[in-house]
């Protein structure tokens, strides 16, 4: 199949970017989307033009590196898949494909389709953990955890930190990302001792980074490659209310 691409090209953080047209020729339907870009890039290099920069690593949908806005959708048209898991069979011969980087103030473009998602790491550093030092942990079976609790924890823990939630949200809100971690840890007994501190710290950092506020459009969950459910966001709010109610600070 042959495709027309319109790709956002931007030399660096401070440069002004623009869309550039490329043709992708003789692409097999079994090719992955990123492999299609590889093919285009090889041709560009041969022609002496700089290849399109994009983040990618594992190419099996788990590292969360890749992510682009493809024809108006985060990670493209395939539901429940990261960009690397999108295959060209999702497109038709002759299609025009517009490829843009994630757009959010908190995710500045570094180059072309590569954005800076370090805000996510800072949110995690603020509270996305259980404070246990190495060593001294009790036997793993000392604390039985009901199977359904464990299952619901892993539903939330499946987040790959790709940023599609932010990209798809009209408010560029990172609530799904933050809530997934809050819910993962709040659902497990090991996470309960720090639950109030954790949710307060993570929400504060999320705001500090300049993400928008969640207005429940549910776009994040719909576009999430791991299909993290909306109930994690509700859980974050419950945790937040609880943390406020229990805080020692005077009203």
């Amino acid at each position: 199949m042959n495709l027309h691409l319109k790709v956002w090209r931007q030399k660096n953080k401070n440069a002004k970017g623009k869309f550039v047209d490329y043709e992708a020729k003789d692409i097999s339907t079994d090719t992955s989307f990123l492999e299609m870009l590889d093919v285009v890039n090889e041709e560009l290099i041969k022609k002496g033009e700089e290849p399109i920069a994009f983040d990618h690593d594992c190419r099996e949908g788990i590292c969360g590196s890749c992510g682009m806005y493809i024809n108006g959708r985060a990670h493209g048209p395939q539901v429940g898949a990261a960009t690397c898991q999108l295959h060209m069979r999702s497109f038709k011969d002759g299609d025009t494909i517009v490829i843009e980087p994630w757009r959010a103030k908190a995710f500045p473009v570094i180059k072309d389709l590569v954005v800076d998602r370090s805000a996510f790491d800072r949110i995690m550093a603020a509270g996305g953990f259980i404070s246990v030092n190495t060593g001294g942990a009790p036997d793993a079976n000392a604390l039985p955890i009901p199977k359904d609790v464990q299952e619901s924890a892993i539903d939330a823990a499946a987040c790959i930190g790709c940023g599609a939630c932010v990209a798809a949200c009209k408010n560029a809100s990172s609530m799904l990302f933050v809530s997934a971690k809050v819910a993962h840890l709040a659902r497990l007994p090991q996470g309960k001792p720090e639950r109030e501190k954790r949710v307060m710290a993570m929400v504060a950092q999320m705001e500090e980074e300049g993400f928008g506020a969640c207005t429940n459009t549910e776009a994040c969950s719909a576009e999430c490659p791991k299909e993290i459910p909306m109930d994690v966001i509700a859980q974050l709010r419950r945790e937040y209310i609880r943390a406020f109610a229990k805080s020692e600070e005077k009203v």
Partner: peptide
């Protein structure tokens, strides 16, 4: 054996049986 203990303490959601054990 220590690794499993450490990871569970960190909140790694390993698969469980219905009785709650790993």
């Amino acid at each position: 054996v220590n690794i499993i203990d450490q990871c569970v303490a960190q909140g790694v959601p390993f698969a469980r049986e219905y009785g709650g054990l790993l």
